[in-house]
Nucleic acid binder design. Structure first.
Lengths: 337, 337
DNA sequence: CGCATAAATGCACGCGCGTGCAAAAATGTG
DNA sequence: CACATTTTTGCACGCGCGTGCATTTATGCG
């Protein structure tokens, strides 16, 4: 770079320039600071001339509030994560929060990921699409205060955490009833890993509603060790190719869109079946690709924007919130079911 | 939360416990700090007992080095962004850097996005997939030092910035020659927006190589105002449906995968054509979806991991680097061309 | 105009740690 | 064992701003 490093201009410089004290400058920059209109305009003018911008780092140190939240993500394979990141970063920024993106490499990396965040004094650590297990939580609370632990897009169970998520029960009930009404009789449920930290209510709800209301046999469930298109694809191939045509499911209900897209690939390209004529498919999330003509996936849209707004509300409440938040999304009827 | 907020444990506490001074504690935590082995183990033991973790915020304030880099992203529609984010966050974290994810809402939001980052004293601001125009750059350098401006995955031109990207010229040359060898004669080039801040060398290279080596007519180029599947899809529909069958291109060369996926959708689902039998398609980036059987897209993989490593190197050099970095990726031959 | 009240402003102290140098302890040498 | 070196340790000062309270200035009222 050719230009000189600009001297850092501090609140003191602005104060001198405006003929007030440094604290008056600080007040001018606080949205509801008590300060006379005259002083505020003087300060702002001086600040503009000098190109002053408050230093959030120093502010965080002094005030014990960083306006920073850590977003802990452990699965970058799911395009829905990108949707959530877009929404979260946009809405959090508008609300005055910065976002620290932390790549959590897996279960066992969680404590260290959390430490990384806590070292920067984040106001909250938000895990996206996973849960805290209890060990993680203790690490977080122990090492240095991470004031809040929030589980986003998943129902958390650990005490001391609050979760903000889509109302899976309502959603899955709607999907199940839609499929019943459409005349489907032999659903196959394609689920992700069956571990504590990834548990969703989707599978249980679907099974429950289906058994109670369709009076059919208990639907078959297959689990896949990870949410990924190839795994979903292979699982469907393996399951269906071992089945006689008449034992084939008429619809595959998937725990999320990624699995559903994999299932569609399997049906069309590996098994030579047609979707939805031979087998229908439903997903969950409404990733952008679900709307493409290639997949045209019937799915359920998570209310991501509302969830992000709820997160802001929780953050602004500063720890006084304790109840989980569940929001209803929207059923997206498309061509695949 | 039921448990008490743990008292913040500072270096002083550790020092007292270990019977040394605070500065010795600091040295123990610096990987190449001069300190006796005895003192270091004493300090580490005390730190472990107390659960001490250095406060990066205070460290940043004192040292003028935050080990934080801002990642400015302005297009969350492209799944390749998720690939880059995964790689960058993982590799930067391993190298000791935190990552601040900033959602840049558009051209005009860039200065403010940059300010957001600079307020936290980031060591570098990295724009991903866009360029800095000169105005932005001045904002960045002016308001508060953002020590480095780095353009990732795009060739930057602004002075004072360095860019780390895929070698588009080599890549596109390889694609062009492959297509020539395969016998394609009438390529259509599907490009993104034709503005300064998004300029890539891909289009120019393709046209140049094609004209020089295929001795064919200059390929037709169509521009789309934004990199998105629907836009790519519509553009192809509009262009091809106005053409007689014999004037139809035999291959559509796309500036990136998103456009290519849109083009495939257009050909198959809107125009009833077969890919690659009627029209072949190539992309660029190698997004995960490109490998799915539904698209099976021939494309070029950007060397994202190497690019991220190069970024770390640049960061560690602390501003002494000034040359751009171009890395070659890998041609991915698949079924679409 | 005098006094009570409200509004606006100023300031001491601290947040937790890094830098650069000086003092102290350990080590080596003849 | 005295002295020169080297290694190790301690410390004053500052990074830029917030908090809480004391002080000053403006405003209202009879």
């Amino acid at each position: 770079m050719t230009e000189q490093a600009v001297e850092t201009v501090t609140a003191d410089d602005v104060a001198a320039r405006a003929g007030v004290s440094r604290w008056t400058v600080a007040r001018a920059f606080k949205k509801d600071g008590v300060i006379s209109e005259k002083a505020r305009t003087k300060v702002m003018a001086a600040a503009a001339e000098l190109g002053y911008v408050p230093d959030l780092l120093a502010a965080s140190l002094a005030s014990d509030r960083s306006n920073l939240v850590a977003l802990l993500v452990d699965d970058f394979d799911n395009p829905h994560k990108l949707v959530m990141l877009e929404r979260l970063t946009r809405i959090l920024r508008a609300a005055g929060y910065g976002t620290l993106l932390v790549n959590m490499l897996g279960e066992k990396d969680a404590p260290e990921a959390l430490l990384t965040a806590s070292q920067r004094r984040v106001d909250a650590a938000v895990v996206i699409g996973t849960q805290f297990d209890d060990g993680i939580r203790r690490t977080a609370l122990g090492a240095r205060r991470v004031k809040q632990l929030i589980v986003f897009a998943r129902a958390g169970t650990a005490p001391g955490t609050i979760s903000i998520a889509c109302d899976d029960v309502a959603a899955m009930t709607e999907i199940a009833r839609y499929l019943m009404a459409k005349g489907f009789r032999r659903p196959l449920f394609l689920a992700g890993p069956n571990t504590e930290s990834t548990r969703l209510m989707r599978k249980d709800t679907f099974l429950k509603v289906w058994e109670e209301e369709a009076r059919g046999a208990r639907p078959v469930v297959i689990h896949v060790p990870d949410y990924s298109m190839p795994l979903g694809c292979e699982a469907v191939v393996a399951h269906l190719s071992a089945l006689p045509a008449e034992g084939r499911p008429d619809v595959i209900v998937c725990e999320n869109d990624v699995l559903a897209l994999g299932a569609i690939d399997a049906l069309r390209h590996r098994l030579g079946l047609s979707v939805p004529a031979d087998v229908a498919v439903t997903g969950f999330d409404d990733v952008p690709l679900a709307a493409s003509p290639a997949y045209d996936l019937t799915t359920y849209r998570q209310p991501v924007t509302e969830m992000a707004r709820a997160l802001v509300r929780v953050l602004n409440d500063g720890g006084s919130t304790s109840a989980d938040v569940f929001l209803t999304g929207r059923f997206m009827e498309r061509g695949s079911a």
